[in-house]
Amino acid sequence: MAGNTIILAVVILGVIGLVAAILLFFISKAFKVEENPLIDDVAAQLPGANCGGCGFAGCRGLAEAIVKAGNLEGLRCPAGGNSTMENIAKIMGLEAVAAEPMVAVVRCNGSCENAPAKVNYDSMPSCFFANSLYAGESACPYGCLGCGDCVGSCQFNALHIDPVTKLPVVDVNACVGCGACVKNCPRHIIELRFKGTEGRVYVTCMNKEKGPVAKKNCSAACIGCGKCAKNCPAEAITVQDSLAYIDFRKCTLCQTCVSGCPTGAIKFSNL
């Protein structure tokens, strides 16, 4: 009796398994999607972080686009960089174009000390929402809101909010220059620049208001005095709307502007 039961159970389970296996086999045949195997090969080379830095929804999106286009024009994985692109080029039988690696810089120095809070933000910690509500705790309508939307958007753990200054800090070694934070910052204060080996010089302010107005909210604001532009030997600095901008393609990292800025709004970083 007992033996029979065991045998019966084994037989029933076995039959169910067999039927299911056969079904699965035919269903997978019937619903098979024909896909270029190259896509899988290309996707395997990509980092798989789905950061969106390439402009596609995910790594697979870029892989499909590359295979479909048949060339690498305008298609690039900023996160993977040159080595990844070379590997992909090899698979595709193409020539990879090397590009200068980029890194994110934060163009605001409105720390708690430089730009003291005038009000207290007491809502959802989201820069997007805060931006829709008001100008910010420091009352600077151009500056960092400090809620960390950029940190949340970074797939590579390259950003964190400094607990003292309440500003985002970029970890240059971890940053791959995908640009996800650039897209997610409602104030557009994050910018991609050449990573280089020696460092970057940039204006840590986005305030387009006239000097005295900008200075009222933040002691480290660019007041648009133009001193840096005058003294720059490489003529890399332009001043527009009371705001200086350093063209990183021209900048020679001489740092003349850094020491000359009256409000300390120009920063050299070589972290």
């Binding site: 809070a117 009000v119 207290n120 933000y121 007491d122 959802m124 929402f129 509500l133």
Partner: peptide, 11 residues
């Protein structure tokens, strides 16, 4: 944050 600052929040 200081006590006497105005609070800003969503409705």
């Amino acid at each position: 944050m200081s006590e006497n600052l105005l609070q800003v929040s969503g409705a």
